[in-house]
Every structure is written in structure tokens, then in C-alpha cells.
Design a protein around this nucleic acid. Structure first.
Lengths: 151, 151
DNA sequence: CGACGCGGTGGGAAAAAGTGGGAATGAATG
DNA sequence: CATTCATTCCCACTTTTTCCCACCGCGTCG
């Protein structure tokens, strides 16, 4: 599974070098094929190995299409899902519409989140992280699963 | 289990010599493989033997992803979790993003906390400790789990 | 009192990863 | 049909990382 925060850079052509420690796993899991789409809550991209994405897409398509919330979710996620492939030097090319959505310029953070990566504009990632830390400090009501969690 | 506070230093490359008394245990428990991540409340790092971490990651991933508090926690903990390994001289390399998060420069404290270590910037550790002492002095109301505790 | 061993520290060389640029290929348009 | 633009592929350079070895200080033992 994918974990860890990696500082990465997009070059002038929008290419991003996948950190090598993940490459082998991506190749064996999906032959280097990935899907990028947008996150429904934050201005970041989600990057899945193809098989992972296919499961998710299936789940999304099974939802009741007449429900407007469902429809929105499908439009966002399926509508933006784009095929990516690792090139010969282990880079992916982030297409302009997605780059724009996530406000990606040069410096970015690639963050492992289990079955997927999240790709953030670096300044935005830093700001957001500070926010999360503040919120958690204020000890809002925790869901029951969390209040008993021992880490 | 890990106990005790150790003064350690990070060299110019971010390497940290694990105190020898812990090395044998780490090697036998996880073959020298560790995971470092960020603490969600304080500016310090948490360092787990790999098997310990895997349990925690499993717990985190089982939580409902749509809950924003859960999402934050996953982003912070899984998102920063980085594989470390003891090198041939028993050192670990603390990666730049984590070093930055915990404001680690040269002098640090490695503190045993049962199933994990905490790694603090030394000046920050000292300040924080003073704070904890002050707060306890003021004898705030204790949660029920604590009020019956015999130490 | 000196020699040895261990833990800690630093540095240098080799290897690998990241980065950029250019050429070739293909698509679009006048 | 030709020209131009964009995309893809490949190669080469630079930087970073990793691995290994040597040194230093300290404590212990002979």
C-alpha cells in the first residue's frame, strides 16, 4: 500500500517523476497504468492504479443515477478520470485540465493514502495541513470509532 | 517495550544513530524496519517498528472515509508515514519533509513510549515539558479513567 | 599507563534518481 | 498538400542519495 509524503516537481511540460520506491509496485499491480481524477472535497487530484479505480468506478456506477448528489459525484469523479502511464523514465504526464483544477504549478506534494495517491500543490498542502492540525487541537466531538482509538 | 529519554543528534545528512540498547530489539521485532510519521497534536515524529505500524494503519483504514475528521487523521498519519531502515551502523535517515515538520535541526530527543518512539527537537521538548508540568500543577479536573489510577 | 573495543560521527565515492532539452512523430489547420 | 503546433519518446547531464570506510572520544580491561 502507498504511504508517505513526497516533494515532487512538475516540469514545464507537466511531467512528474514518480518516486522510485513506488514504481515497482505500480508496475506489478497495474503494468504502470494509473487513473487520475479530482477529489470531491479538496483541490487535489486522486491517483489510482487502474484495477483499484475500476472497482471504485463500478461502485459509483451502481449508485442510483436519479439522485442529484450521486449524479454530481459521478460527474466529478468519472468525468475527470484520465488514463496515465509511467513513461520510460518513470514519469507521468498530468493533463492540463487536471493541473488547472488542482492549481498545480511547479512544486507539489505526492501523498500516499493506502490504495491511492493524492497530488497537491505544495503551498496548498501546507496551508491545509496547518488547518487540520488546528481543528484537531480544538478537540471537536470525535466519532465513537475515534474516541477509543489507541495510537 | 521502549522506554527512556535519549539525547541524540542528527548529522548534516539527517542521519540519527539509534541508541544501541534498542537496536537488537528493533532488529528482532521488525528486521530493522521502522515507520516514522507525524504526531497529530504536537510537532514531533512517531517512530514505530513496522508490525506495530501495520496494525495502526489497518485501524485507520477501516474508519469511514467520508467523515472529515477521519479523513484528516488519515491524511496526517498515513500521508506522512515513511519507511525507514537501520543502516549498517545502526542509523536511520530522517527524510526532509518529516524533519521539517518536527523542526528538527541538530539536537533532538528520542523518547521511548511503549510500542513507539517519539522524536522531538530538543529545545522544543524542553519547553513542552515545562508546559506539561505547569498544566498539571493547576490540578484541572481529571477524566474518570485517570482519577482512579494508582501510580 | 597503554591498548583495545565500542558507540558515535563525519566524509567521500559510487550509484541512482531527478531534470531538462531536443528530435521525431503525429495531428490540426490554412 | 504543406506548414505549424503539440505531444511523445529518448538521451544526457546534474543533483541527490546511498553505501562504505575511517576517524575520534571514551570507557574498560589488561
Amino acid at each position: 500500500m502507498f504511504r508517505g509524503a513526497n516533494k515532487v516537481t512538475l516540469d514545464a511540460k507537466g511531467r512528474l517523476a514518480m518516486p522510485t520506491r513506488y514504481r515497482e509496485r505500480i508496475v506489478e499491480r497495474s503494468n504502470g497504468r494509473l487513473i487520475a481524477t479530482v477529489d470531491r472535497a479538496d483541490r487535489c487530484l486522486l491517483i489510482y492504479p487502474l484495477p483499484e479505480w475500476e472497482e471504485i468506478e463500478l461502485k459509483l456506477r451502481r449508485l442510483p443515477t436519479l439522485n442529484p448528489t450521486v449524479r454530481r459525484l459521478q460527474r466529478l469523479m468519472i468525468g475527470h478520470a484520465t488514463d496515465l502511464e509511467l513513461d520510460s523514465s518513470g514519469r507521468i504526464l498530468v493533463p492540463p485540465p487536471l493541473r488547472e483544477y488542482a492549481a498545480l504549478s511547479r512544486d507539489a506534494m505526492l501523498v500516499g493514502q493506502g490504495n491511492r495517491f493524492e497530488l497537491w500543490d505544495e503551498p496548498l498542502w501546507n496551508e491545509s495541513r496547518e488547518q487540520w492540525l488546528k481543528v484537531d487541537e480544538s478537540a471537536e466531538e470525535l466519532p465513537p470509532e475515534l474516541s477509543s482509538l489507541s495510537i
